[in-house]
Amino acid sequence: MKSILAFETSKEAFTHEELTNEMMGKLISYQQHLEQHFQLSTLPKGVIWTNDLLATTTFSNIPIPAFTREDFIYMSPQLEVWQSLLVSQLESKEMDEIHAFYENFSEEHLFIILAHELTHHIDLFVDEFDDERHDSIWFEEGMCFYLPRKFCLSEAEFQKITDIEQSLVNCFVEDYGMHSLDEFGMASYKGSVSSIMFDYWRSYIKVKSLIEYADGNVHHIFSLYKEWHEKGREIPLTKYFEESQK
C-alpha cells in the first residue's frame, strides 16, 4: 500500500512523516495476519494521511478523522487531536481514570485505529463498500475493533480497553438508551461524539461476548453471520445470534 501525505503545507507533512512511516511498517505484520486467517485478498491502494480538518470536511463529513473507502484509508496521525477528541467523549462525566487514559492515548492505540480501518477490507464481511449498508454495521464495526486489539495488544492492554468501553456503555446508557444495535447506520453519525461512539463501544462489547460464548472461535461467529446473510436476513442479526445460542 502507498502512504500518501495529504497536508496543506510541506512543513505539516514533514512533522508527521516519521510516525506515519512507523505505522505503515507496523501494519505489514497485521496485514499478513489478516491475509492468512481472515481472507484479506484485496488491499486498498493506500493510506491517505491528512489532518483532522481535511479528513472531516474535505474528504468526508464524518466527524471522526479515520475512515475507509474501497480504494483508500483516510486517517489523521495527529496524536494530540485524537487525545482531545477522545477526552471530549466523556462530556461532563466524572471518570478520572478514563479521562487520564485518553489524555495519554498512545501511538500504540492510534495504530489500532489504523488496523481497524484495514480490517474493513477483509472478504469475510458480506457488504461491499458501495452497498447501502444496513442491518449488520454493528457486527462489522465491532469485529474491526476486536481483531486488531486481540492480535496487536497485550492481554492486559486488551482487558483495559475493554473495561474502559464497558464502563462508558454503563455510564452513557441513560443518555442514549439501549436501542437495538441493528439500528446502527448513517443516522448514528449525526449526534455528539459520545452518542456516535456509544454504538461503537456497544458493538465491540457485543462482538467480544459472542466470540467468548463460542470459546474464542472467531470463525464460528463469522460462519453464523454468513449463514444469516445467505438466508436472506429474515430476522435482525442480533436476534439470529441469540437464537443460535439456544
Score class of each variant (00 low, 15 high):
residue 79 L to S: 06
residue 137 I to R: 09
residue 88 S to M: 02
residue 154 S to L: 10
residue 224 L to A: 00
residue 189 Y to M: 12
residue 201 W to Q: 02
residue 80 E to L: 07
residue 109 H to I: 01
residue 51 N to Y: 12
residue 116 H to E: 08
residue 245 Q to S: 08
residue 32 Q to F: 03
residue 242 E to P: 00
residue 194 S to I: 04
residue 149 R to Q: 09
residue 243 E to N: 04
residue 47 V to R: 05
residue 5 L to N: 06
residue 235 I to M: 11
residue 74 Y to V: 15
residue 126 V to S: 06
residue 194 S to R: 09
residue 142 G to M: 12
residue 78 Q to L: 10
residue 27 L to G: 13
residue 185 G to I: 03
residue 193 V to S: 12
residue 228 W to M: 08
residue 138 W to H: 11
residue 235 I to P: 05
residue 36 Q to R: 12
residue 5 L to D: 02
residue 239 K to S: 07
residue 182 D to F: 00
residue 44 P to K: 09
residue 13 A to Y: 08
residue 40 L to G: 08
residue 96 D to M: 15
residue 77 P to G: 06
residue 186 M to C: 01
residue 90 L to F: 09
residue 222 F to V: 03
residue 231 K to G: 01
residue 176 Y to P: 01
residue 193 V to D: 10
residue 88 S to C: 02
residue 217 N to M: 03
residue 3 S to E: 14
residue 33 H to R: 03
residue 6 A to Y: 09
residue 179 H to G: 12
residue 31 Q to K: 15
residue 14 F to M: 10
residue 226 K to V: 01
residue 209 S to P: 00
residue 145 F to P: 00
residue 77 P to V: 10
residue 219 H to E: 12
residue 221 I to Y: 02
residue 205 I to L: 15
residue 149 R to P: 01
residue 120 H to D: 14
residue 144 C to E: 03
residue 146 Y to N: 04
residue 225 Y to K: 03
residue 12 E to I: 07
residue 68 T to A: 15
residue 128 E to Y: 11
residue 89 Q to C: 13
residue 75 M to A: 00
residue 122 I to G: 11
residue 121 H to G: 14
residue 146 Y to G: 09
residue 48 I to V: 15
residue 56 T to P: 08
residue 151 F to R: 13
residue 26 K to H: 01
residue 81 V to D: 02
residue 182 D to W: 06
residue 50 T to N: 07
residue 32 Q to P: 01
residue 97 E to M: 11
residue 177 G to K: 11
residue 212 E to M: 03
residue 185 G to F: 08
residue 43 L to N: 10
residue 130 D to C: 12
residue 197 M to L: 15
residue 133 R to P: 02
residue 92 S to W: 08
residue 153 L to F: 00
residue 135 D to L: 04
residue 198 F to L: 03
residue 43 L to Y: 06
residue 185 G to K: 13
residue 222 F to C: 06
residue 168 L to S: 05
residue 140 E to K: 10
residue 117 E to I: 11
residue 66 A to D: 04
residue 214 A to E: 13
residue 129 F to N: 10
residue 137 I to K: 08
residue 15 T to M: 14
residue 43 L to K: 09
residue 232 G to S: 03
residue 143 M to V: 01
residue 196 I to W: 04
residue 43 L to G: 04
residue 228 W to R: 03
residue 85 L to Q: 11
residue 83 Q to F: 04
residue 149 R to L: 06
residue 7 F to A: 11
residue 38 F to R: 07
residue 12 E to T: 13
residue 84 S to W: 09
residue 14 F to Q: 13
residue 170 N to M: 05
residue 104 N to F: 02
residue 174 E to F: 07
residue 6 A to P: 02
residue 135 D to I: 01
residue 124 L to H: 13
residue 86 L to I: 06
residue 164 I to S: 09
residue 142 G to E: 11
residue 211 I to H: 06
residue 157 E to W: 00
residue 49 W to V: 02
residue 130 D to A: 15
residue 110 L to N: 03
residue 13 A to T: 08
residue 83 Q to R: 14
